[in-house]
Amino acid sequence: MAKVVVVTSGKGGVGKTTSTAALGAALAQSGANVVVVDFDVGLRNLDLVMGAERRVVFDLINVVQGDAKLSQALIRDKRIDTLSLLPASQTRDKDALTPEGVQKVIADLREKFDWVICDSPAGIEKGAVMAMRHADIAIVVTNPEVSSVRDSDRIIGLLDAKTEKAENGGRIEKHLLLTRYDAGRAARGEMLKTEDVLEILSIPLLGIIPESEEVLRASNLGSPVTLLNPTSAPARAYIDAARRLRGELVEVVVPLERKGFMGRLFGRKVA
């Protein structure tokens, strides 16, 4: 039975696309058939983060409008053959997404894959609602920062109101993915702690992704961080989160960067 997951947040720039790519790749590495779907019509970026930007021919809108077959628009990952990407359109706007068209595409993807991971656009408008509409599970990506937590609270409200599951009297499964976390700063009282965010949002924790230079390096190189450097701190955190998503019980720890003596000496941040 396929699972449809939406990666959402309300606020932009918190790590939705990075997390979609990293979790998608981690799930695919364990042998599952995974498709990552970019719902950010007009501002697509999942293709770039996945390193497939030069292979895009058809996109989600073409499929929704019947101009291309689903199989023509899907891009198979060159590193893992169980991972595919359905890119968003860069030239159209969100109005090109019709509810019926999206429903059909998601239903077709459910037939072909074990996991359908939808990368939501920021905001609470049509695009975000379309991305969450047919999801079974929502991953709410949040930074330990006031504006991100507030927007996540808003998105949780929308998930309980505007999804198909909620409208049919069910409850959509919601998980918190805390990203850009700095355990040191949290311990010093400079940053909201995991417990603070969990208490405020009161949804279960899927994982804590530590702030890391590896995340930018991975997007620079066009590779999910879980593929580029699987032993790095953020990759280990994403791999653990993917295991929890599959239902495994994995203790939540914040992985630390393994730094050598020289790294510690010169790698210290200025701010």
Binding site: G189, K193, I200
Partner: peptide, 15 residues
Amino acid sequence: RSSAPVARERLQVLL
């Protein structure tokens, strides 16, 4: 240094 407790309290009231 202890700005996080302030953030937490503000969020709790606001939300």
